[in-house]
């Protein structure tokens, strides 16, 4: 039974991690708290839904399209809003992204009402298969594996490509990066886009088994904040591990104490861990 719970939590955790990796990029690199992160996820899910309902493409197949769309949304957000509030205190940027989140969330309600939308007959069904006496849902496995692959892809991008290294350099010291000839404004735009791409992918992976409505993503963004801080800011590997820890903690807490208390466990874990490691699990 415990094994069953652990595996479910772990599968959830991979998706949490991908959402958190996206947040970690903007928060860690640019020191911008993006309150519209959850709304990026929401727009990704609506994109998945409409591509499915109008063209008939399953979210898993249209994933690249959704990634590109939300990447564009991220870049546009940077160009139109964030660029103007970079110079002042981070809380002003927070206010701007909060306004943006209101716009994005309520636009979905305005266009498509607050009713639940569901994708029926997805490519991967919600049937379970049995491994070592545990029932594992196919669509969860696909989402988790996809999320893990994409997280690793982002990590590889950050470590292996020139742009990725430039992003890291900018996050460590903006002035020095500028002196080395890095166009930091372009790097910021790319970082925001990349952050959007991560949630776009997460949205596509989740869309087939998550009801889609304007409030669907509020929980994910709160959890993403905690996961990013737990892992250590700007640390993608940290966000991945923290996502898994939170996923498992949530499942175990729900089983051992009661479903309504599962997030209590998540927040308690953060408060305890942060006492021992004041800069997150993998912070330096």
């Amino acid at each position: 039974m415990i094994g069953q719970i652990l595996i479910n939590g772990l599968l959830n955790g991979f998706v949490y991690a991908l959402v958190a990796v996206g947040l970690s990029l903007t928060w860690g690199v640019m020191d911008i708290v993006n309150f519209a992160h959850g709304e990026f996820l929401l727009w990704g899910m609506y994109a998945a839904f409409w591509i499915w309902s109008l063209v008939g493409l399953d979210p898993l197949i249209s994933l690249p399209i959704i990634v590109v769309l939300i990447f564009a949304l991220g870049v546009l957000t940077y160009l139109i809003v964030i660029r103007r509030v970079l110079k002042v205190s981070g809380l002003t940027a927070l206010l701007a992204t909060f306004g943006l989140s209101m716009v994005l969330k309520n636009l979905t309600q305005f266009f498509w009402t607050a009713n639940y939308k569901n994708i029926t007959n997805p490519l991967v069904s919600n049937k379970s298969f049995k491994v070592l006496g545990m029932y594992i849902r196919q669509d969860y496995v696909v989402a988790a594996v996809g999320a893990l692959l994409l997280t690793m892809l982002v990590m590889a991008f950050m470590n292996k490509t020139k742009t990725g290294v430039a992003i890291k350099a900018t996050s460590m010291n903006k002035q020095a990066a500028q002196l080395m000839g890095i166009d930091t404004s372009r790097i910021y735009a790319i970082t925001f886009g990349l952050s959007g791409a991560c949630v776009g992918a997460a949205a596509a992976l989740m869309a087939s088994f998550t009801p889609i409505y304007p409030e669907a993503c509020a929980l994910y963004s709160t959890l993403a904040f905690v996961i990013v801080a737990l892992g250590g800011f700007g640390n993608i590997k940290g966000a991945l591990y923290a996502g898994l820890i939170i996923g498992v903690a949530e499942a175990l807490g729900g089983y051992l104490i009661g479903t309504s208390y599962k997030y209590l466990v998540v927040f308690l874990i953060y408060l305890i861990v942060i006492q021992i490691r004041p800069r997150g699990l993998f912070g330096w």
Partner: peptide
């Protein structure tokens, strides 16, 4: 209840913060 008021409201907040970041 269409959410349109909230859309405009949010856009106004973005506009204010972008033009006058110090509040």
């Amino acid at each position: 209840g269409s959410g349109l008021d909230q859309v405009v409201f949010g856009a106004l907040i973005v506009l204010i913060t972008c033009t006058e970041p110090l509040g």
